[in-house]
């Protein structure tokens, strides 16, 4: 069963901010399990908008409408309860957003606290250690777990946010340009981490950095003016793009 149904699938997904303008137009794509899929495109092409649709972030803003279908393991999330969907589909944002009033320890567990779930102390400790280890932050922070998350460097904060998302054991992890606010060293660190993480979780990442897409993703989407221009193996897309728009973007004529 599992091998037939894709973990996440967009079916004619449209997102519009106003009645006249559509930011995402009829995108259909199936995301493969345990891969990293990159979404590329010039700025304003709708890549972040598409990503946010998969986490029902648009539900927070009453003027935005999403139509079509987005299937998670074959179930249309658009008709599901947002708070349920968001637990299964984690998200990491462009800017690291550790909660400033919580310690590093509490930040990792914030998904549980926010959802009103109380864990026994041992389970908390195990979860914190597991999640911080999987983002290779454990060794750096294990002695300062009670410090505020905002004390960490930008790269560490972003890894903390990834750990926070992983704590909820999501099926899919959405990442919206997670390294664009970070320096090259921190970026490299996160990229290595993502390659490790794809064993446990399917990753969909928006990036404007073509090098990054090439380094980490096995599949790539190229979006242009809200449409999905091309979707396929990253290597193939970079060596011989089939769409004219992709070609001119990759050769630097556009965007």
């Amino acid at each position: 069963m599992e091998s037939i149904i894709p973990i996440l699938e967009f079916k004619k997904t449209c997102v519009s901010y106003t009645k006249q303008t559509m930011a995402v137009k009829y995108v259909s794509a199936a995301i493969e399990r345990n891969t990293i899929t990159a979404i590329m495109g010039p700025s304003g092409c709708g890549k972040s908008t598409l990503l946010r649709a998969a986490n029902l972030m648009h539900n927070l803003y009453p003027n935005i409408t999403v139509t079509g279908e987005i299937l998670l393991n074959g179930e249309n999330i658009l008709s599901m309860e947002p708070i349920e969907v968001r637990r299964k589909i984690g998200m990491v944002f462009q800017r690291p957003t550790p909660f400033p009033t919580m310690s590093i320890y509490d930040n990792v567990l914030s998904g549980f606290t926010l959802n009103g779930i109380r864990l026994p102390k041992e389970e908390k400790d195990i979860t914190v250690e597991r999640c911080l280890k999987s983002v290779s932050l454990w060794d750096e922070v294990k002695d300062v777990l009670n410090k505020k998350g905002t004390f960490l460097s930008g790269g560490q904060q972003q890894r903390l946010c990834i750990a926070r998302a992983l704590a909820m054991k999501p099926n899919v992890l959405l990442m919206d340009e997670p390294t664009s606010a970070l320096d090259p060293v921190a970026t490299k660190h996160i990229e290595e981490l993502l390659l490790e993480l794809q064993k446990e979780v399917t990753i969909l990442i928006v990036t404007h950095n073509m090098g990054q897409a090439m380094r980490i993703s096995s599949r790539s989407m190229f979006m242009y003016l809200g449409e999905l221009a091309e979707y396929g193996d990253t290597a193939t897309m970079f060596s011989s793009p089939s769409d004219e728009r992709t070609k001119s973007y990759l050769t630097g004529k556009m965007g």
């Binding site: 972030m57 708070i83 984690g90 944002f93 957003t97 914030s110 926010l114 959802n115 009103g116």
Partner: peptide, 22 residues
């Protein structure tokens, strides 16, 4: 910051939970 609130929503919090805890 909006980022902070969206961060909390992305973890599955309801609005009341975001209000109370963030």
């Amino acid at each position: 910051p909006k980022d902070l609130k969206e961060g909390a929503y992305s973890l599955g919090a309801t609005r009341a939970e975001v209000v109370r805890k963030i």
